[in-house]
Design a protein around this nucleic acid. Structure first.
Lengths: 150, 150
DNA sequence: GCGGCCGCCGAATTTCGTTCGGTTGATCAG
DNA sequence: CTGATCAACCGAACGAAATTCGGCGGCCGC
């Protein structure tokens, strides 16, 4: 995990489709060496995949929310099943199982607030839910360049 | 935005480094056509970028948390500056500005709970903060395949 | 029915990914 | 100090892919 690795990590997080030759040239190394390094990163599991990022606004899903869910204490045993359910909802972007006042935080994206209302009302039907409250997301920033901490 | 586009969207979100020829073959179209379609998706802003995904555990950042922050009412005017500050912290993965009980939710990843404690204590020093509480993330699932809702 | 247009195709060209043998430089045992 | 060992890097060669572009066909408007 030297500086060459971290540089490649930064480049590939910035643009996963950048050519191997291009990156090698910027780093001043041979393309074959560059390829070996990237292979190493994948083999060691540092890079777990390459993904295209879609703009939610461009696919008519401009409204985001965080839905905080607390299960009924008696339903905590089926938390995994509930987790699967929420995770499979097409509206869900990501799902956190957390400690604290809530058990789950669901980050969702829908068309508009109307659709958000429908989703929350739909979720609230579930028997295992003890409390549910939603927060509209005004702004969302996701970091694409994640690095090892010093 | 026909079924060809959605299929390409799905493929590229699943593996952004898949070859054009490969995808064209699977869809039964010419590589040149496939390339045009992908160009269209980029030009229309549907695909906003390609990113490598790094495994947090592999870079010694196994501990995740959601830090809920409420600003003092008098400090809401400087919310943007505060947002910038949190967003630039190397520990931050994503930042939500939300409605509801909290003003911000910061999704962070650090080495261990010790480092989390340090981060929270450090954040709490900020004058604009009225309330701060953190939740440890037991599980986190992010969907890589985001599609238009029906 | 007819002209124009958009999208798709396929071959040709350029660029790229990938392999592999050889070389260098560091490390370590003797 | 010296020699051997190993890992990493290089560069050329080969196969494969990206990209371009001219042309074809279907579709819509008129």
């Amino acid at each position: 995990m030297d500086e060459l690795d971290t540089a490649l990590l930064r480049m590939l997080q910035n643009d996963a489709r950048r050519t191997n030759r291009d990156m090698a040239a910027e780093l001043g190394i041979a393309p074959s060496t560059c390829l070996e390094r990237i292979r190493g990163l994948r083999d060691r599991g540092v890079i777990s995949g390459y993904h295209a990022e879609v703009d939610l606004k461009a696919i008519d899903r401009s409204t985001q929310a965080i839905i905080s869910i607390k299960l009924r204490p008696q339903a905590m045993a089926v938390a995994t099943a509930f987790q699967d359910y929420v995770n499979k909802l097409p509206q869900t972007l990501e799902l956190f199982m957390v400690s604290g006042a809530s058990d789950f935080l669901a980050h969702v994206a829908v068309k508009d607030t109307q659709a958000l209302r429908d989703l929350v009302l739909d979720l609230a039907k579930r028997q295992e839910i003890g409390d549910i409250r939603s927060s509209v997301v005004f702004e969302h920033h996701r970091r694409t360049t994640i690095m090892p901490l010093p």
